[in-house]
Design a protein around this nucleic acid. Sequence first.
DNA 1: AAGCCCAGCAACCGCAGCTCC
DNA 2: GGGAGCTGCGGTTGCTGGGCT
Length: 259
Amino acid sequence: MGRSPCCEKEHTNKGAWTKEEDQRLIAYIRANGEGCWRSLPKSAGLLRCGKSCRLRWMNYLRPDLKRGNFTDDEDELIIRLHGILGNKWSLIAGQLPGRTDNEIKNYWNTHIKRKLLSRGMDPHTHRPLAPDGPSSRQEPPRPISVPARAMFALTTKQPAPAPVESSDDGGGSSGATSTGEPRCPDLNLDLSVGPPAADTPTSHSQQQPVCLCYHLGFRGAGDATATACSCRQADSSASAQSQAAGFRYFRPLEEGQYI
DNA sequence: AAGCCCAGCAACCGCAGCTCC
DNA sequence: GGGAGCTGCGGTTGCTGGGCT
């Protein structure tokens, strides 16, 4: 594709995977588990680079993947999460069991963008399109910039004004829908980005942060999708410190609460 | 029937962040 | 503290198949 290869290895296959390669990869991971992608190709007898193996497994071969069309509910969830998280496809994928970031990214670019445009919404800003067209004004992407592994706590305490650009103009995807359904009423998203707050009580100390994963169905071990959320694993091992820097805090939402 | 166009999907690449030493 | 190596993420590209002319 015009760029230099990511691997220095010259004798690696590229392009579409063959059935044989798939079978080898599946067999190897079944026997040895995931991890150590760099050495996996050699161990598995594959002429691929580790990144390629990982991608193939994550996006196509994993047994817990859900194939098939996205449902309307998934559509709406993706739109809502994109409004909150922006192009953090992996985070969004984490809320959709069986879906991959690549799949969601592709789906967004091919379907949902169009869907939002047909609704008169700007897919980047989740705001109503300007009268002079979507691309005529080069508005920066969503102002909420959440680093992939940045610590953020999400609170739902109301009715404080949301620091996030919520859909107060009536057009945001997180607001009430045209049907009047209270999808995300007056959300107070307190996305605090910074060092872990566990030992540093702040003004949020009385506002129990909420783990998106928890609310959206990831309940930890036992769940087929448990690996997508490490909230409950965070404290269990020192090696999970990096995970702890991610979704560390969680609290189930109460009935009637929305995100 | 043949060629063209385009949407959708799979895969690649560079980079950022994390861990280990 | 800093460098090296590895992993994961997001953007981009290229292939493929279906629809249209």
